[in-house]
Design a protein around this nucleic acid. Structure first.
Lengths: 211, 211
DNA sequence: GAAAACATGTTGCATTTGCAACTAAATAAT
DNA sequence: ATTATTTAGTTGCAAATGCAACATGTTTTC
């Protein structure tokens, strides 16, 4: 059920044919380079082919918010994410990105190519996944205290490990920006959680003891 | 571009044919009745045909969070919203709801009916809209102070009115739950915004003076 | 139209949070 | 290998927030 890429299940030849037809452009970015900024208003979507990136926004206080962590095969774009309001996507490692115009993807072509309908299905599933992800994020951010934000985020990460142990995919500095809280206040709360024996930590490796 | 309903652009006869084929069920709910709760794990989607509803969650502190306000033609369901984690949908007025199994919608039928591909396109656009909505909500909730949450939410509402005047679609009590903040603290902050001449209010009608 | 239920508005106070300013540890750069 | 730079970990303090407990106003309900 999980869709890895929007091209999942489509033969390499067909993918290449599509990419040509869509005038897709592949670009490479070095670590820490900005992949897109609010300047673009063309309805493009980007697909991370390799590497990783963060979608970030700086508010007028200068606080950075990490909106989303983009891994391999992640899709981003104005259509999906309301880019434009000072959002940018920054490479967190060297990466390759494919750009396609959104219209090409959703507009079923007149010829009714078989692969095109497969593509639509994949996009549908990707969008569903993105919605699930966004809802998880909303659930975390809707918690009123830092402690509860941490716990609900940790619960999410722990739920896929039977031992309830996981590695946070961020530095603690980045985690604070992801949870939209002050870093020092977050560190204080993590200390409290350790003192209360709710979590054990070893660097970025965390075990949820009880909830 | 805006899709009103997933059946937009499909003739009434075709819609009726589909509904039969999909074994869609129409149900009516009185105001304040629960439409769905976490119990369901069937992959159903619901469409509000008339009336309105709130998607809500109560956390373990007893705080209510309004996750989403559902109006006519809104779509909800596990696929879209990660229902299941104690989320329920409650009617805020008498309403009619149509239930369809999600699989029926995304699975392109073998016959390749013309309307089915139209339906897929509509769902695609609806999902995109939902993502935009979720991102707007994330932008609001990621603000660190109540003042900034209010301002960014008000900005969103004001942006569609040239006079920067709008009516909040909630009671103030509900607004606090929507912004995931304490009501009295929110009222205090609204008072501050008025004192600072940032907003003017007349009941639920608000004017953003400057930002 | 009286009573009940709910929404709005307000306040004091304890708690949580953000901010600023540090030190120490770990990574990256030259 | 030594020096920068970034990350992690702390702390005091002011500001923001949540909580509880009210008063008042408005809408429903019977």
């Amino acid at each position: 059920m999980e869709v890895k890429s929007i091209f999942e299940g489509i033969s390499d030849e067909d993918v290449n044919r599509m990419l040509k037809c869509f005038e897709a452009r592949k670009m490479t970015f070095k670590k820490d380079r900005t992949i897109v900024t609010n300047i673009i208003n063309v309805k493009m979507i980007g697909i991370i082919l390799s590497g990783s990136a963060n979608m970030v926004r700086y508010d007028y206080n200068g606080n950075r918010n990490i909106i989303e962590k983009l891994e391999e095969n992640s899709v981003f774009g104005e259509v999906f994410s309301r880019l434009g309001s000072d959002i940018s996507v920054v490479a967190t490692s060297d990466c390759e990105v494919l750009f396609i115009e959104y219209e090409h993807i959703i507009k079923r072509c007149k010829k009714g190519c078989s692969y095109h309908s497969m593509l639509t299905d994949n996009v549908l599933k990707l969008l569903s996944q993105k919605i699930v992800y966004l809802n998880e994020r909303l659930e975390v951010l809707s918690k009123r205290t830092i402690r509860d934000k941490l716990l609900s985020y940790f619960e999410l990460l722990a739920s896929s490990s039977p031992k309830r142990t996981f590695t946070i995919p961020f530095s603690y500095t980045d985690l604070a920006d992801y949870l939209s809280v002050d870093r020092s206040a977050m560190m204080r709360e993590i200390k409290n959680l350790k003192d209360d024996l709710v979590i054990k930590t070893n660097g970025r490796r965390i075990t949820l003891i009880s909830y």
